[in-house]
Amino acid sequence: MSPHQSQPSDDPFNTLLNLEDDYYNQGYAEGAADGALAGRTEGRQLGLEKGYQKFFESGRLYGRAILWANRFANATSSSPSQSSSTSAPAAQNSASEAGKEAQKQLPPLPINPRLEKHITILYALVETESLSTENTDEAVNDFDDRFKRAQGKAKIIERMLGEKASEEAATAGDGGDKGLTV
């Protein structure tokens, strides 16, 4: 190189020619930093939303398992006869109170050992004390597996009892047991 030729760094147009690249690199760096922050925020929001949905449905199945278990227990412990040593007015009062009490109770389930086994397994699958709330792959996979198995058990129980599917109740939009007939 001759001493009269100028260096590329001495070129006055060099900064203008590289201006686009400089702005691109600056924008990329700012976008990557903002994206990392927004990604964590959006990921957390999505995780909370999905976690809520899963635990909501799991809680609904837990409630149904308790309801079915209590209905099954009522079927096995109900006695068909009452004491006949009461007087007529007392018997009328107790009969009207018994009528009110009968209106508040759900009908008992048919006595069926297979049904009892399915209800017990469903309860064990969705029982809250043994469900892990850790955010690890193993805990999430265990929860998802138990949840899917519990949904299957609930469908079996529904079919055995002739009840409507739980998915219809969940998609009804009110979060209640609209599709549940007892």
Rank of each mutant, 00 (worst) to 15 (best):
R44E: 05
A165D: 07
S6L: 13
S77C: 12
A91W: 03
V182T: 03
F55W: 12
A91I: 09
L161F: 02
E116F: 05
V140N: 04
T136A: 06
F143C: 02
L125M: 09
E163T: 02
G47K: 03
G31N: 07
L180F: 12
G176K: 10
K104V: 07
P80W: 05
G99N: 11
G173V: 10
I157G: 01
D10G: 11
E49R: 03
S6K: 13
V182R: 04
G152Q: 02
R60Q: 13
N93H: 10
R159D: 08
T86H: 07
P12Q: 07
T171A: 13
T133H: 03
E101W: 09
K155S: 04
Q53P: 00
G152M: 03
T15W: 06
Y123T: 04
Q92K: 14
A75R: 01
A38G: 07
M160Y: 01
D34F: 08
I111G: 04
N135R: 12
T128Q: 15
L106H: 07
G31Q: 06
N70R: 03
Y62P: 00
R146I: 02
D144Y: 03
A32R: 13
S6Q: 14
Q92C: 09
L180R: 06
S79L: 15
G43D: 06
V182D: 02
N25C: 09
Q103P: 04
V182I: 12
A169C: 14
Y28H: 07
T15P: 10
D144F: 04
I66A: 09
S2N: 14
S58Q: 12
L109R: 00
K117C: 06
S87V: 11
S58L: 15
A75V: 04
N18R: 10
E42I: 08
F13W: 08
G59P: 03
A91P: 03
N14A: 14
T76D: 03
E116P: 05
R64D: 01
P110V: 07
E129N: 11
R146W: 02
A75S: 11
T76K: 08
A33H: 04
K164L: 08
S84H: 06
L67V: 11
G35K: 05
V126E: 00
L161Y: 00
P110K: 14
N25I: 13
K164E: 05
L67K: 04
D137K: 11
L17N: 13
T41S: 07
P110Q: 09
L67D: 04
I121C: 02
K54P: 00
A91C: 10
Q103T: 08
